[in-house]
Each structure stands twice: as C-alpha cells, then as structure tokens.
Design a binder for these strands. Structure first.
Lengths: 412, 412
DNA sequence: GGCGATTAGTTAAGGAATTTTACTTAACAA
DNA sequence: TTGTTAAGTAAAATTCCTTAACTAATCGCC
C-alpha cells in the first residue's frame, strides 16, 4: 500500500483447485446438506431446490445411499402424479459423545447424527485431581455408549467442554483455575487413547453459546454472545454459526475485563476520588459478589446467591437492592461487550444468569443510561444443559463432515 | 438440541450447485489468484502450484489474457531447459478511487489493480454542510482521475472512509457527530451518480485497520485491532483479513465503552467512593482529555495535545505525568478489548496514537498490572495515510473481484 | 375398472471441461 | 553440434453434467 503497491503475499498457500472428481463430491455434499435441511424430500424436489438435473440427483443419491449417509423413508402420496420416494439423512451413519466437565458435575451424552440424544448420565464430580477426573469422564462415556446399545467404534467424535482455554499447540488447558490439575499437558492425547475417538476440547462458555445457537435463545442469530455468570464469568461469541475464538482462544474471557480505570484516570474531571481496588470484573459480578453485596446492605446469616435471589423475588428489601446492583454491574458488562462487538443479542446464562426474571428489567434500564449501543438481552433457554448440548451439537457438526469426507475418500 | 434433535433449518439457502461451466471459471479464478500472489510466474509453475494440468492452465491463461486480466512479462531464463514465458496480473484491467473524508482534510487517491497509487490530492475540508463536502469530494475525485490520465469510465469502484457507521438499509450515516449534515440519507446514491462508479462507504477506523493489514503494522496478522485516538476514539477489527463489522456495523465503537461502573457497584468491596461522572470513554481518552489532564496537573496557557506531548518528550514534569495517565487510560481500553476479543496485536493510530514513543512503554507496564491477556501493542506504520490507503486496498479487493466476475459473465 | 393427466424417476445421447499421453519447441551445456 | 532438460501444445480419453425422451406410478374422473 506504499506507492510501491500492495505487496504480493509471499507464501500464499496454493488455493485448492477443483479438478474433476471434486465436482461430483461437491454436488453430493450440496445434496446431502439439502436432505438434512428439508428431509423428508424426494429426488425431484432436490433437483428443483438445487438446480441440478434429475439424473445427477439420482446418481448422487444412489452413492449417498450406498455410503449409508441417506436412506429412503417412505412415499409421498396424496398429490397428483407418481408417488415420490422420500429420503432422509441416516442418523446411524455415526454417533458422537458430548461431555461437560464442570466444577461439581460431569455430564455425558451420546447422540446420533441428527443430534438426537440416545443416552446420558450425570455424575457428581468429586474428583480433585486431573487423573481421577479424566477416569471418571472416560468411564462415564463408555457407560453411556453401552447404555445406548452402541459399539464404541460407532462413535466418530467426542467434544469435551470445560473451563479454561485449550491451547492446541501445547495440548494443555490454561486459565482453568477451578479445576485442580486440569492444566496438565497431554490431556487430549490421553482422552483420545482412552475413548478411541478423536477428541476436541472447548471452553464451556463457548460450547454453551453454540448450544444456544443450535437449539436455544440464539437460533439463527448471525451474531450473538452468551454470557455465563455463576461462580465465574465467561462469554462465548458466535458469529454466523461459528465460534469466534480470538487469536489465542481466549476471546470472551470477560472475567479479565478491568474493573475500572485507575484513580488517576479521573484527573481532569474535577475529582480524584480514590478507587479502592483494581482488579478483575469476575470478582465483582460472580455469585460471591452478590452475597458480599447483600451482606454489605445488611443481610445476615449463612447466605448463598440463591437465597439472595429468592428473598429478592419475595420483594424483601436488602436483597432486592443487592440484585438491582448486580443487574447494574451486568449491564456494565453488556455495554462493554456491545461497544467492542456490537452483537445483535446477549444471552444470559449460568447460575446467576438463570435469575433473568429479576435481572433483565433493571439491566435494560441501566443499559439505556450507559450506551446507545443496546443489544437485545435474553435469558438462556437451555440453562444447565447448554454446555452439554453445545458439545453434542459441535460434535455432530464435526461428525457430519467427517462421515461425508470419509465417504468421498472411500470412493476414490 | 432438545431430545427431539437438532431442528432442520427451515429455509436453509440452497447452496449453489456446480456444473462444469462453474468449474471452468473457478479454475480461472484460482489461477488468477495464484498469478497475483506469485507473479511473475510461468504456466508450468502454475500447473505445479495448483495441481491443474498443463493444458488446463494454458487454456485458462489464454482466456485470462484475452480478457486483459493477465499479461506476459518476459522470459524466465538462466535455468536449464526451455525458457518459460512469465505472466503477471495486468493492473490496467481497472482502476479504483479511495477517499478519506476527515474532519479537517479530504484526501483522494487513484490506484490501479496492483494498489499502486497513480495520483492523489489532499484538500482542506472547510465545508460545513453535507452538500459542499460531497461536492468537494467528487470534484477532487474527478480531478485526481484526470491527473492520472484516466477516463472516468476506467474507474471500477470507489471506497469512501468517514466517521460514523454507514447504515446500508437506510442509506445514511449514523453516529457521525463531528461532520455536520453528513447523516443525511441518500449519500451513497448521490455519490454513485456523481462519480459514475459503484461506491462503498466504510467507517474510517475500519478502513485504517484494513490499511494497516494490507501494508502496515498488521500485515498477515490473523486477528488484530486498530485503535485510533485523536479527537475521537475508534477501533477497527480485522479477522483473517476481513473486517468484523458487528451486527449493526458498530463493532469497534469503543468510544461508547462505559467509563466505569456505577458508584454502587463497589458495594461489597468496603468502599462507596462516589464516582462523579458516568459516561463515555471517548471523553476520557481523546485529545481533549489529555489537555484537561495537563491543566489539572498545573499546566497553563493555550494548550494543545501536541504541546503536552512535546513537553513530555522534553521530560517536563506535569506534561510527562499527563501523558503517563493517558497511557494508563489507553491500557485500560486495550485490556477491555483483549478480554472480549483476544486479538494478537493492537495497532495504535490517530493523532494521540502517533505519540507511540511516549505511550507504548507505560501502556505495556500498565497492561501487565491489569490483565493476563496482553496482546502485542504496536504503533501505526501508515499514520495519517492509513484511512486513505485502507480505502484504496478495499477498493482494489472489490475491483479485482468485479473485473473477474465481469470477465466470466462476458464469456457466457 | 379404464383412461387421461400429472408428476417421479430412468435411459440414452450430447457436450463441456479436465486429464493423460505423446509430441514439439527452446534454452543451456559439454 | 549434440544431448539434456524443461515449457508448452495437440489429440485422444475420461468424467460427469444436461437435455430430451421415455417409462412408471398415482390420482381423478368417466
């Protein structure tokens, strides 16, 4: 862009070419996607939808059926003309496992390629070392696969959701402060060996976001964020149906938002009130903060965040104030995210976020005072299931791709 | 993702199918891209790079040459064997105009498809109405095109950078607080009529970000943000070489970051120091804030931000403190952005950002105290040229696509 | 129940674009 | 001058899509 012009990219990867053979498989893929989107559907309808000719559709569907990716499901009757043979995707072409490794629970589910859950189990996570936690998870996974009546080899892919950021290069998890030992390297390799499938490790907030995208509050939304507030604070960003991971996989780690500018920042505004604490937003917004706030306002006894919210729901006063303050702090978070990302929607989840009935109103009001950029704020639809369902949805997407690729490879 | 499974997307857009004609044009596109990336290059080398066969490459290159998109440049000699005929993209296949409409300057440049600047002019922006500003810009554009010795019809595309967010649906600019009248609807239509080319209107910070990506501090960086600090505060996000616009085009409007939580937010932290002002970060970080800060620290006289930085550069004390405070506030901005986006790099630009020699050190130090997510921070390479060069680069990208598409259409 | 209309799916021919194979052309070196 | 190496081209073979015509099956109607 200097007067010398835009420099050529020196090692631009040779773009994939499309020699013959690829054309065929691309059209097969288009048809498979269409079958998945509009099943049950006839060949003639597929031809109309995709613009491909009837013979092409027929031969491609034959190949897909031979590969076990689609199957006939019945005849369309009632309309004029010859009855159409209807096809649907064959969900038994592969199975997936989704795992949610949380601080207190480990949840595992098996699903087919339709995303239908075939079996699931939840188990208390009492393990406090990486090794036992891993053993619990793999044991549970094997059990659930057996429960579903499947051979372990039928499972194509496993997605595991957990706190922290998975560093693919180092094969270890970073920032997983609440899971002791979980940051030990080699986690993924050990999981793959133990389960006999490929394994993907994804931040739990990110998976929850994907869960809400595929079947929750964010369905079809081109850009939204999922904010989870509980013992911690996290966020997942979904743009056009895909995660926005950031350069190091740490996008959405809003627990690290700086709480406030330094005291001296207010120089020039005529005040120099000292701000007592600089630190992470997480401390100010998570469940503990709600309890601290309630105590400071006069509540006593062995408090939990749930108790505060329950009291507020009964309109008891110090609690209601504490909740209002929490809503204002959350509005601050939403305003910050809106200024950077401009999402269309913010979905609120997690233990605190589940009290959306109390929070959404004051949050919206506060947002109007804070910023002109005001995304819609909605409650999570999936609740505690979001991570697990997001893991399954992610695994399904990968597996669908995998079985198709495998099919085209096999064809030669 | 309920037990019923992942619901099919009801109106999934039918993916475009590919017949063999599409294959032809796709291969031509691949070859053209490769010529652009690795020019000068021979047909045989193209065949090796793309995996296409030599005859395919030959016929495709013939077509591209007939269309004026590539041209032979000479012979590769010196190696063993027959000398290879080398090809390069033909930059005269089309020309583009880039415009930077700023608060005090309007800059216009003409470039060829290589991004080489052929002519440019800057003119003081004295206009204070939308109509005169538009007249100045179009007049300047016509002049510059003539300066370059081009027919107006040779210009394929024009990109205009200006403050605010362009709302395509309403064909008007929003949030352009510093350009009076600029928010009037119909701007783009009038520009297209006046210039006789397609016109694209993009936020100036976003264009500066793209400029730095194509030929500045962000070259090749998969995810970085450009933060411009001057009379205002803005940011552009570039992910994989493309802008991240947000749902409403307002991503990166970090001027709207909430300055600090409400006073009551600090409930539970044992302090209730009132924060005197809630508002936008823009006021606290822009040039005016530097002046305000310096005054509060004791500087007197008719101050400008530049004067404060110059004094600080001479190590004069109140000024140096004011600059340090500015650096801390900017670190706060970077930390906020890092927590949400996790960029690999933050490029600092704009009038204040240009003083990176003074700011980068204290900013880095403050970042280390604020957050564990610490992107690299670097100074803008393009300086005041960033917006204009970004506009040109964006226009070149669009024009390259346009001329190719036009060529394949013309072929039938 | 038979017949026409209508729609689904198949077969055969034709065509577009690619690859393979074999050849020619051109540069350098011994 | 001759041999070697690599670039580029010509012709035939291959792939796979489309068009067009045909068969098949279902419904409505007489």
């Amino acid at each position: 862009m200097t007067p010398g012009g835009i420099p050529p990219e020196p090692d631009a990867p040779a773009v994939a070419h499309w020699n013959r053979g690829v054309l065929r498989s691309h059209n097969e893929r288009v048809l498979l996607d269409r079958v998945r989107a509009a099943a049950p559907i006839s060949r003639a309808q597929l031809a109309r939808d995709t613009g491909l000719s009837k013979p092409t559709v027929s031969t491609a569907l034959e190949a897909l059926e031979r590969a076990g990716l689609v199957r006939p499901v019945g005849l369309e009757t009632g309309a004029r003309g010859r009855a159409a043979l209807l096809y649907e995707p064959d969900p038994t072409a592969g199975y997936v496992v989704g795992v949610d490794v949380g601080r207190s629970w480990i949840r595992v589910a098996v699903a087919d390629l339709d995303g239908r859950l075939l079996a699931r189990q939840d188990r208390h996570n009492r393990a406090r070392t990486s090794a036992t936690m891993l053993a619990t998870a793999t044991d549970l996974a094997r059990t659930v696969v057996a429960d579903a009546g499947l051979e372990p080899t039928a499972v194509v892919h496993t997605v595991i959701g957990c706190p922290g950021v998975y560093d693919r290069a180092a094969d270890r998890i970073r920032y997983a402060v609440n899971l002791p030992g979980w940051g030990r390297p080699g986690l993924r390799g050990r999981m793959e060996a133990a389960l006999g499938t490929t394994v993907e490790i994804v931040n739990d907030a990110n998976l929850a976001a994907l869960g809400e995208y595929h079947g929750g509050a964010g369905v079809g939304c081109p850009l939204f964020v999922y904010v989870t507030v509980g013992t911690g604070l996290g966020m997942g960003i979904v743009a056009d149906g895909r995660l926005f991971p950031g350069a190091g996989g740490a996008a959405g780690e809003i627990g690290f938002l700086p709480l406030s500018p330094r005291p001296s920042d207010r120089v020039g505004h005529g005040a120099s009130a000292p701000v007592p604490r600089r630190g992470m937003l997480e401390d100010a917004v998570s469940a503990d903060a709600v309890v601290r706030g309630a105590r400071a306002l006069g509540m006593t006894g062995p408090l939990t965040a749930k108790a505060v919210f329950d009291a507020a729901r009964r309109a008891e006063e110090p609690a209601a104030s504490a909740v209002r303050h929490e809503a204002q702090r959350l509005a601050h978070v939403v305003a910050s995210v809106a200024a950077v990302l401009d999402p269309e929607l913010v979905v609120l989840g997690g233990g605190i976020g589940a009290n959306a009935d109390l929070l959404l109103g004051p949050m919206t009001a506060e947002l109007h005072e804070l910023t002109p950029l005001r995304p819609r704020v909605a409650a999570s639809v999936l609740g505690e299931e979001a991570v697990l369902l997001g893991a399954v949805a992610t695994a399904v997407a990968t597996a669908r791709d995998r079985v198709f690729t495998h099919h085209t490879m096999g064809q030669g």
